[in-house]
Simulated scan of single mutants.
Amino acid sequence: MTTPSHRRALRRRLVYTAAALAVIGAPAIAPTAIGTATAAPSQMAATSAPAAFDLAGTVNTRTFTNYHTADGQSINGRVIRSDSLDKLTAADQKKLAGHRVTSIIDFRSDVERAVQPDRAVPGATAVNYNVFGSPVPISVDSGSAGLTDTESQYREFVTSASARDAFRKTLLDIKSTAGKGDTVLYHCTAGKDRTGWASAVLLSILGVDRSTVEQDYLASNTFRHADAGDSLNGVNISSLRAAFAAADKTYGSFDNYVSKGLGLTAGDIAGLKKGLLVKHA
């Protein structure tokens, strides 16, 4: 027997999967250069622009190489964030292999992956860290949950055991792979929500200021030609801030979320920084 709170959580997960599948069926959105889109200017911080990683078969793929930490270090190209890889071309596959992508992390549910299976990258190991955990029963009624309650969904990125496990494994994978000089690519369906929170966590751990973290998150609107008010295709800063607020409320601080919620040690943090940060002379 499930409890009312458990049923509400299941409803939110089912609705989120439905929204993701709706994105799958949406018309393809062509990529564009940063600076030419119509992302909400009032929400976009005046910091470094994201670095696009151009692939013909994706629309929201980028690295963190344009960002700097509070102490002036830059980030190398050993992490790529992306949307689904089901439309990769042969040239895309070759480019990713040439960039030493040896680990591909898929945050999607079983349903999403079945509908939109990734195309393999030569030399890369693919793993599935399903943020939503076990499949949601199809009998769950999602009608009352609504497709716009993204703040609740983002809070679950922090509070859900399956989400914490997925993001913990991702960060440890990044530490290990980058430490070898290779590259990790992680993605969901649209590369904006699950991928957006994973990126916000990673950048914060590395010491990037919050305004830049928020800009990187909002850049999904630029790459996807979406409006911040469109929860299906775009992102709104209130959702990201809801996740950060949940970390503070649940664990007392973001640092505690990382250490207690994700279970990362000081050695793990040091390893991430060693593998990804570049010191300037």
Rank of each mutant, 00 (worst) to 15 (best):
Pro4Tyr: 01
Arg7Glu: 01
Arg7Val: 05
Arg8Trp: 03
Arg11Ser: 11
Arg11Asn: 04
Val15Cys: 11
Ala19Trp: 02
Leu21Ala: 15
Ala22Arg: 15
Ala26Ile: 05
Ile29Leu: 12
Ala30Leu: 15
Ala30Met: 12
Thr32Met: 10
Ala33Pro: 12
Ile34Ala: 15
Gly35Lys: 12
Thr36Tyr: 15
Thr36Asp: 14
Ala37Phe: 07
Ala40Val: 14
Met44Asp: 02
Pro50Gly: 11
Ala51His: 12
Ala51Arg: 14
Phe53Arg: 05
Phe53Val: 01
Asp54Tyr: 08
Ala56Gln: 11
Gly57Gln: 01
Thr61Pro: 02
Phe64Asp: 00
Thr65Gly: 08
Ile75Ser: 02
Asn76Asp: 02
Gly77Asp: 00
Arg78Met: 02
Arg81Trp: 07
Arg81Gly: 05
Ser84Asp: 06
Leu85Asp: 00
Asp86Gln: 12
Ala90Trp: 06
Ala91Lys: 12
Gln93Asp: 01
His99Val: 05
Val101Thr: 05
Ile105Leu: 10
Arg108Thr: 06
Ser109Cys: 07
Ser109Asn: 10
Ala114Glu: 06
Pro122Val: 08
Asn128Cys: 11
Phe132Gly: 15
Gly133Ser: 09
Val140Phe: 06
Val140Ile: 10
Ser144Asn: 05
Ala145His: 07
Gly146Glu: 00
Leu147Gln: 14
Thr150Cys: 08
Glu151Ala: 14
Glu156Ser: 13
Phe157Lys: 12
Phe157Ser: 01
Ala166Met: 04
Phe167Met: 07
Ile174Lys: 06
Ser176Thr: 10
Asp182Gln: 15
Thr183Ile: 01
Val184Gly: 01
His187Gly: 05
Thr189Val: 09
Gly191Val: 00
Asp193Asn: 11
Val201Gly: 06
Leu203Trp: 04
Leu203Glu: 02
Ile205Asp: 00
Arg210Tyr: 15
Arg210Pro: 03
Ser211His: 10
Gln215Thr: 13
Ala219Asn: 15
Ala226Arg: 04
Asp227Val: 03
Gly234Glu: 00
Asn236Glu: 05
Ile237Gly: 13
Arg241Cys: 03
Arg241Trp: 02
Ala245Cys: 12
Ala246Ile: 03
Asp248Pro: 08
Thr250Tyr: 09
Val258Gly: 07
Ser259Pro: 12
Lys260Tyr: 06
Leu264Asp: 03
Ala266Gln: 09
Ala266Leu: 11
Ala270Leu: 09
Leu272Trp: 01
Lys273Asp: 00
Leu277Gln: 10
